[in-house]
Design a protein around this nucleic acid. Structure first.
Lengths: 338, 338
DNA sequence: TTGTAAGCGTTATCAC
DNA sequence: GTGATAACGCTTACAA
């Protein structure tokens, strides 16, 4: 009964009657390794027989690379971030990297980044993390970072075209004839979200509308937040005929509040969201929203990171992914506008 | 301008005028380290000044532990698994472990496990992975494994009480007076899901009902699957008055199909789900379902794993978490039963 | 073509 | 108390 410890390159070497270095040379198929064909074949065969697997930790120690990527998201319970994670994971796995995942909901971003740095992580993807959160992370500058939905001058990234998303939301409502449009969105310093808001506001201004300050309501970026916000709007003296919600969870919460209050959607009030979560097609009526390619964002971010690690230095710019309006059942012309 | 390579224990030693070994002794606060108080203080101070962080990779190499946990889920885009992941991540972070995440949707479980093993991963959490998938993974037996919702004789685990979940679904419908009850569930070898189904079937039998074979419909575990299944049921010669869906996604898909077909829920057909995703409260009417503590499952699994790694050998049994019925708006007495 | 040997940054066992 | 020193498993000059 052997101690059953994992097979090492030394074990293989012994069995093959060569030095451990030769085994390494063969198995790492180092292009500059000039090994006799017979030896090579034998080593490979024996390695196979013994079930040899290189110890990645040892490889990491000498190469100073861990072949691991980190992904930091605000909160996995938001399906949007789950999709980003899914996309990033797929690419990481394809490229032979392990993916470490962390949320910033309980533990701070800085702590996770420090822990990862100690593990020699090769690079990290930061999703919706205000640049502020990176301020006091030591050694941040030396890290390979890709930002998602948070353009940065120092790090490359990928982002959805949030400004356009906001504009499209507003323009769709305006096009339907709405003039009394409210906004429901979170108070946040996440660039992507703020751009959505800015897009809406700009489009409203361009149409010559002014946005009453009490029609730009700050709520948590959750269904509960949307419900709360919508209730407030509906309780106001003058009601909006349409509400632009800066994400789908908020929008669905708003729909809920409308239903509870007996306000018909879209007849009495139109609601538009942003993200196009699967959820959007599951509520009744189906949610009109802006499709944002979450999974693609994650996948591209991972791909960009891997490429940079391979030395194919992409510029520190942010690649913008298009978004598009998806008209469903929660928007219509305002009542009595026929 | 220094090359700016990370500070090592040797750097600290040099600055503190002690040997590298002493630095290690001090900083690893090895209980058996008898170091002069003055030396200890100095080393600590200098380490701090220099911003020294032990290289986890080097630690792993010598200690043969990576302080990383792996979590394997079928598919992150299912909010249930995203919650499990969230729970596991929280505990892992709290306990000082990194969490590697992988999905089995594109890459096989075996490949991920092999990759992790090569990284000396300390333990893995396997969620809803049929024991079959582990058959041909070499070295599986030496791995620290915790199963979620898949009881195993060789590995410990945590699971929701799926049999009870199924029973409660059926009993709720029976209690309302339903006698024509169909089941919509995936074809799978995942134990937890099959138990749900078994629970429903058992409860129906106990009530003296027989389940027509065409009322046990196999569909993908998604909203699309539920939609498809429900459409089939509604097209049948005889319609069920209630449908037990083995997860919430299927249930909302079923709701959708009902709405499309002009069948009123719950008046003409009752629908019950299982999971209690956030989604359940967002659809209209709100979904009656069985609350399954997904996040808690993930958290407990991680805790159990960490405990085992600490040598507190928990038995290889499966801890069962209770589930409970949540009555909302999609179930009612069958039509004309008043 | 292959072997020897020097690291990579730690931990842990010894002498001193 | 503290400092050499030998691992841990691998990569990569450099020798032979």
């Amino acid at each position: 009964m052997t101690p059953d410890r994992p097979v090492t390159a030394t074990d293989v070497a012994r069995r093959a009657g060569v030095s451990q270095a030769t085994v390494s040379l063969v198995l790492s198929n180092n292009p500059r390794a000039r090994v006799a064909e017979a030896t090579r074949a034998r080593v490979i065969r024996i390695a196979e027989e013994l079930g040899y697997r290189p110890n990645v930790v040892a490889q990491s120690l000498v190469s100073r690379r861990s072949f691991a990527l980190g992904l930091l998201v605000p909160d996995l319970s938001n399906p949007f971030y789950a999709s980003v994670a899914s996309g990033a994971e797929r690419v990481a796995a394809e490229e032979g990297y392990a993916l470490m995942l962390a949320e910033t909901v309980e533990v701070t971003a800085a702590r996770h980044l420090e822990a990862w740095r100690a593990r020699q992580i090769d690079g990290v993807i930061l999703d919706a993390l205000g640049a502020r959160a990176l301020r006091d992370v030591p050694g941040m500058a030396q890290m390979n970072v890709v930002m998602v939905d948070e353009p940065s001058s120092t790090f490359p990234g990928v982002a959805s075209d949030a400004l356009s998303a906001g504009r499209q939301m507003a323009e769709h409502l305006l096009g339907l004839g709405h003039r009394r449009i409210a906004i429901l969105g979170p108070a946040t310093d996440v660039h992507g979200v703020r751009q959505r808001e800015r897009g809406v506001v700009q489009a409203l201004r361009s149409a010559g509308l002014t946005l009453p300050s009490n029609w730009l309501l700050r709520v948590p970026p959750t269904a509960a937040g949307g419900e709360l916000g919508m209730r407030t709007l509906l309780a106001g003296a003058e009601r909006p005929t349409a509400v632009a919600c800066l994400n789908d969870l908020i929008a669905v919460g708003a729909m809920k509040a409308a239903a509870r209050t007996g306000v018909a959607v879209p007849r009495q009030v139109s609601i538009i969201g942003c993200d196009d979560l699967e959820l959007a097609r599951l509520v009744t009526p189906e949610l009109t929203t802006i499709a944002v390619p979450a999974r693609e964002l994650g996948a591209r971010a991972a791909r960009l990171l891997v490429r940079r690690l391979a030395g194919q230095g992409a510029p520190a710019s942010t690649r913008m992914l298009p978004v598009r309006l998806v008209v469903r059942g929660t928007t219509a012309a305002p009542e009595g506008s026929a």
